[in-house]
């Protein structure tokens, strides 16, 4: 059974490499199944381009089931496209009209340099995570389940924050290219749990310091980040990060009390 198909026009940002000048190129893709994901449509485009001997459009992708955080794309002015609470790989072509022109841009931020076309370097997120987004534990025997009692509401709050897949949509949407929502989610998921509380001060200070040194902006409380977040992470977590930071900055970190 041949399903419904549409013809679309694309304006895609093409850039040969980091620091090189880029420009928009126009493409047409015909007979696109409406059941395809946006990335599958790009695969079809690239097949066509390869057959013509052209350089395919580079874009990041991995799991294609909305959980890895690799896919990005700023589609018609929205990170991950016009739908709410999904990643680009979960965006279907039925969202678009026949004959529609779709503008596809990379995430733009000083801290996310374009590597090629639509692919950007998001390792700044990894360095923020490495600065303190973990719990120091002594590995050993497996502890008993439920040894530490955690109320369901607290576990839910931690899980809401832990949904962050680090895709960078928050930075892409933010007028200040701030990574507060990402940093807040990573601080929050541990700050509410007893295992994470022990290092909360050091974590908040170190992760914010890394956030700033990567060249991300400050938060204006605009809320564009939570509107585009594929995991619907709320800016109430940014308020928690602000509390965690304030607590740590004005009371000193754990190490300030020791030699």
């Amino acid at each position: 059974m041949a399903g419904e198909t549409i013809n679309i026009k694309l304006k895609i940002w093409r850039q040969a490499g980091q620091g090189k000048p880029g420009k928009f190129e126009s493409y047409e893709v015909n007979d696109v199944s409406v059941d395809m994901s946006f990335l599958e449509m790009l695969d079809v485009l690239n097949e066509n381009e390869l057959k013509k001997g052209n350089d395919p459009v580079h874009f990041d992708h991995d799991c294609r089931e909305g959980i890895c955080g690799m896919c990005s794309l700023y589609i018609n002015g929205k990170p991950h496209g016009p739908k709410h609470g999904i990643t680009t790989c979960q965006l279907h072509m039925r969202t678009f009209k026949n004959g529609e022109t779709i503008v596809v841009e990379p995430w733009r931020a000083s801290a996310f340099p374009v590597l090629k076309d639509l692919m950007v370097d998001r390792t700044a997120f990894e360095r923020i995570q490495q600065a303190g987004g973990y719990v120091t534990i002594s590995t050993g025997g497996v502890p008993d389940a439920n040894e530490i009692a955690i109320p369901k509401t607290v576990a839910d709050e931690a899980m809401d924050a832990a949904q962050c897949i680090g895709c960078g949509a928050c930075v892409a949407a933010c007028k200040n290219a701030s990574a507060m929502l990402f940093t807040a989610a990573k601080v929050s998921q541990l700050a509410v749990l007893p295992q994470g509380k022990a290092e909360r001060k050091r974590r908040a200070l170190a992760m914010l310091e890394q956030h700033d040194s990567e060249g991300f902006g400050a938060c204006t409380n605009t809320g564009a980040c939570e509107a585009v977040c594929p995991k619907e992470i709320s800016i109430t977590h940014i308020a928690r990060l602000n509390r965690e930071f304030t607590r740590a900055a004005f009371s000193g970190s754990e190490t300030d009390y020791t030699n």
Binding site: K78, R108, A109
Partner: peptide
């Protein structure tokens, strides 16, 4: 200070289609 920092963070290349999400007054 913050405006300078935020403009630097956003970078030189502007989006062709700008994002409309969030509180418009705050922008």
């Amino acid at each position: 200070l913050l405006t300078r920092q935020n403009k630097k963070a956003r970078g030189g290349e502007a989006y062709k289609v700008s994002n409309k999400d969030g509180s418009s007054v705050s922008k």
